[in-house]
Design a protein around this nucleic acid. Structure first.
Length: 697
DNA sequence: GCGATCAGGT
DNA sequence: CACACCTGATCGC
């Protein structure tokens, strides 16, 4: 939850997302999105009165946010005082002190934040410098690099301060599966259930908040069934959303909110009261969107977890993960950064310690010293049981590589989309997601004896798994050393090339080796120029290699036989998740003999060859480049439009993108996305090969 | 009667 | 799995 008090040091006459206390005297108000915790004081009598007295005070926000806010009659008094600003449109605003007549101009630019419909970040430019307030955001890696208006020419704007959404700024949230992965998992789960019969329905147990709309629209498009919701008048002018939701209970997909009533579900009714007309009992599963994260050293597993006989949890996040935050901030490199949110159980100091190194002031003052490569191994050996970062992380998340890596991904941002998880789907037709439907299925739908998992869960086993399946840490070390040697060789080559003013061979420098093994460990399925050639997802995404099931099969499976409720201790650690996934696979082996309701259609999906459809869908994606419309850009409201100009990316299908792209929130390509210039490359190579920042713990 | 705040729930 | 609410109790105005 935001603990931002409303004002920024540089522009204290402005209040953002807070409307109480000292904010009552602000000369202008800004609302980043329509969540209640960002609207404190917004309808307080005090502010209402002030509004009546000072005619120059306005509330600025995106068109969608204005629409959503004014749908609520309690905020109707703002109607004439709200000014919506189009996204990506720098707009000058006068801040007038009504007492003195003093006037200060600032230029504000709204940037899409990917958090919920209408959510934006605010970029302010004025006499006190350029500052960025992110509000709440979820941006995939590399997306910041594609935001044109954060750049001047080829360079990132010189940003004094960033007021940052630090909700997940904790290494334990190192990675959160991308929007595409989560959506894909949910689609498959829903498919496996509602295709069983018209009486099989799903209930999406969503929190009362904007932000799930893209889920609804995708489900609706995929299955041709509108999603039942309690209210939809707030979307009355957003046909792209409105056309996919309904207040008619007679649908197989529900996101309506009602007090959970056991009686109802037992009586085969939905909480909304929906039941089948002809007396045939309904079969209901509930899917609860919630954030599932993976630590830096945790193998990624499934995005769907079974939590009960007919209940599932599906990964879903409105906020950027730790690595996404670092990517974001590391790209912008402001002079200062301020945390808008204190993550649970952490202090401001803790967060700042993490963020400071990503600021310009920090890296400029830090002296880069060469350290022998041999030291690397030792650092890597540090037991990172609860350490925040491995040296690998330190190595490659450091500027300037991060910087440049983003530039790459900017060029390549398409690939993660054709990599599989086809999204919006008006044009998807029957193209199957190219990723691994098999694994998705295995991990999402088959019955899981999750209590069993928890009981047999433990630290040791996590370690064991890691070693068994991903290669031991020794192997990683070796790889890393080799990688650095390669880097050095390449540096030499690059240096030579740079001197001759020839652009060095980028791809050879970043061999799959380097980025695959040493780059942020969780993104190995998005390796640029990967030797894998195609963009099949890493099997790790949804399931692990076969030896995993072998490993699991040997486990004692007789412990728990009954699911009662979700054990509270079971979800506290990621280790649980790891094992759970394994258990699911074991469950998959057990197959339909399991006593929990099992969508049988899934069996078919189990034999779909993994590779099939990749090329096809890939090509399809190319031709449908602009098909993925953002749900945050309803036509009538006219928020951010997808760029219709082709990205250079499209021309080069074999290139791969960075991870966690979220095409729901279109971001224009940045000017100057061509290949990096030789001098820049040279600089980067040099830093990289030195790798020393890394070496210091 | 309204709002702010807190506890507790989902 | 920790976000974004809702409800209800209590207190103050």
């Amino acid at each position: 939850m935001s603990s931002f008090m409303g004002r920024m040091k540089e522009y204290p006459a402005i209040s953002i997302d807070r409307f109480d206390r000292e904010n009552l005297s602000a000369r202008a108000y800004f609302l980043s999105h329509c969540h209640k915790d960002h609207m404190k004081g917004l309808r307080a009598p005090f502010l209402k009165r002030r509004l009546q007295n000072s005619l120059k005070v306005h509330l600025y926000c995106s068109p969608v946010t204005k629409e959503l806010l004014l749908t609520n009659p309690k905020y109707a008094f703002w109607e004439n005082r709200m000014i919506s600003i189009e996204i990506d449109t720098p707009t000058q605003i006068s801040l007038v002190d009504e007492a003195t007549g003093y006037k200060e101009d600032v230029v504000v630019t709204l940037l899409p934040a990917g958090h919920c419909p209408g959510s934006v970040m605010f970029l302010f430019q004025g006499n006190s410098g350029t500052v960025l307030y992110t509000g709440d955001f979820r941006l995939a890696k590399g997306e910041v690099a594609r935001m044109e208006l954060l750049h001047s020419g080829n360079r990132v704007k010189d940003i004094e301060s960033v007021y940052l959404d630090t909700t997940f700024c904790d290494p334990k949230y190192y990675q959160i599966p991308s929007r595409e992965e989560c959506l894909s998992g949910i689609l498959e789960l829903v498919r496996s259930w509602i295709t069983l019969s018209p009486f099989h329905v799903v209930w999406l147990n969503c929190k009362a908040a904007y932000g799930y709309e893209y889920l609804f629209t995708n489900l609706s498009e995929e299955f041709g069934a509108k999603v039942h919701v309690n209210k939809l008048d707030m979307f009355k002018n957003m046909p792209e959303i409105l056309s996919h939701i309904t207040t008619d209970r007679r649908t197989q997909i529900h996101a309506c909110r009602h007090p959970v009533n056991e009686e109802f579900t037992r009586a085969n009714r939905m909480p909304c009261g929906m039941f089948s007309d002809d007396g045939i009992p309904l079969h209901v599963i509930s899917i609860k969107p919630s954030t599932i994260w993976f630590g830096e050293r945790t193998r990624r597993t499934n995005v769907i977890v079974r939590t009960g006989e007919s209940s599932y949890r599906a990964c879903f996040s409105f906020h950027s993960s730790y690595s996404e935050i670092k990517d974001f901030l590391g790209y912008i490199k402001p002079m200062n950064v301020y945390a808008n949110v204190i993550p649970m159980g952490k202090s401001i100091e803790h967060v700042e310690k993490i963020l400071k190194p990503l600021c310009r002031s920090y890296s400029d003052s830090s002296v880069i010293t060469y350290k022998p490569l041999g030291a690397l191994k030792r650092v890597r050996c540090v037991d990172s049981q609860d350490t925040d970062k491995s040296c690998i992380d330190a190595l490659f998340d450091d500027y300037p590589l991060t910087h440049v890596r983003n530039k790459i991904s900017r060029d390549l941002h398409w690939s993660s989309e054709h990599c599989g998880h086809a999204l919006s789907s008006a044009h998807r037709e029957n193209v199957r997601p190219a990723s691994n439907p098999v694994d998705i299925y295995v991990n999402t739908v088959l019955p899981i004896d999750y209590m069993d998992c928890e009981e047999s869960n433990g630290e040791d086993e996590e370690e064991e798994e890691e070693i068994t399946e991903e290669g031991s840490s020794e192997i990683i070390e070796a790889t890393q050393v080799e990688t650095l040697e390669t880097a050095c060789r390449n540096l030499k080559q690059a240096t030579t090339n740079a001197e001759e003013n020839v652009v060095p061979d980028w791809s050879s420098f970043f061999s799959p080796h380097i980025l695959g093994k040493v780059d942020v460990s969780n993104t190995d399925e998005h390796i640029p120029a990967s030797k894998e050639g195609t963009c099949s997802h890493s099997p790790k995404l949804f399931s692990d290699s076969d030896d995993d099931s072998t490993h699991i099969s040997s486990m004692n499976s007789s412990q728990s036989t009954h699911i009662s409720e979700q054990g509270s201790q079971g979800w506290d650690s990621q280790a649980d998740t790891v094992l759970l996934s394994s258990q699911e696979k074991r469950a998959a082996e057990l197959g339909a003999s399991h006593r929990y309701p099992t969508p049988l259609s899934a069996v078919d999906q189990l034999v779909i060859p993994e590779a099939s459809g990749i090329d096809e869908s890939l090509n399809k994606r190319f031709s449908d480049e602009t098909a993925d419309l953002s749900i945050t850009s309803p036509t009538k409201i006219g928020i951010h439009k997808a760029k219709s100009t082709g990205d250079s990316i499209l021309i080069n299908p074999e290139l791969k993108s960075d991870s966690q792209s979220s095409s729901d929130f279109e971001i224009p390509s940045t000017p100057g996305t061509e290949q990096p210039q030789p001098d820049k490359l040279h600089y980067v190579y040099e830093r990289l090969a030195m790798g020393e920042t890394v070496l210091k713990e």
